[in-house]
Amino acid sequence: MEIFQFSFMQHAFVAALLLSIACGFIGPLVVINRQVFLAGGMAHAAFGGVGLAFFFSLPVLPTVFVYTFFLSLVFGLLVVNQRELSETIVGIIWAGGMALGIILLDLTPGYKTELTSYLFGSILTLSKSDLSLACVLDFLLVGTIWWKYKEFVTISFDSEYAKTLGIKVNNCFLILIVLAGFSVVILMQLVGIVLLISLLTIPVYLAKPKSDTLYKMIFKSTLWSLFFSYTGLFLSFYFNLNSGAAIISVAIFSFLLVNLKRMLLNKESKTVFVDGQL
């Protein structure tokens, strides 16, 4: 196939696999712990890292990774110690990170052609070293969730009970926030900072109805993410579309289609019930 002859497309497909695994593993934990707003805040605040990379002429992805790692630690410590103010803290860091990025980019001389690729994703900017970093982060993310799976299930269900078992609940939440930061770095290049939040939520929404355990939800979310990103990449290549927008459009379209199907099935079952009554 023509699409696989280009090395940038080969990179894009590897990146899509990595991001699907990242979304599939961290998305369900973000959603069930009601941390979607926090993940959104983290994604937008990561723009500060892009600004830093441009200002100091550093490689973008490693810089964003270091920046996001420390940011997520600060974020996490503030949130776990002041739960009742977590939304306010997220709001501050969300806007603060964006403002920092914009100011640093304003102060950077020259025209920043690559900028939109970090905001909305691009298949052209992926290098081998970026993929290697994404691969390491994916490995860390999957390994940590596998290792702490049962603790995560317990704290997600009842954090107070988890404390009585001796589980360090605040540390677990901190780890979760750092992992969400890792996923931001992995997703940023292909989907973009602005759009990545939908890939953390839509696969989970679609995977939820037939999942009776968290690991099944993780597995199904990964498959949905893989479907969205690969279909999106094909569309992006053949119709010359922005990769992030194409992937998210496929996700949104699937979301609408599945909901429509559910609504029709619901209507049908109600009709059967009425007929039965008659």
Partner: peptide, 30 residues
């Protein structure tokens, strides 16, 4: 057994998994 445990409607969980939370030093993984 705490008072008024609210079911987290977003968390998919079987009765088996709920009870297994009380088992100490469990095998790692899924």
């Amino acid at each position: 057994v705490p008072q008024q445990v609210r079911k987290n409607m977003l968390l998919p969980l079987t009765v088996f998994e709920l009870v297994s939370m009380g088992v100490r030093s469990q095998k790692r993984g899924f």
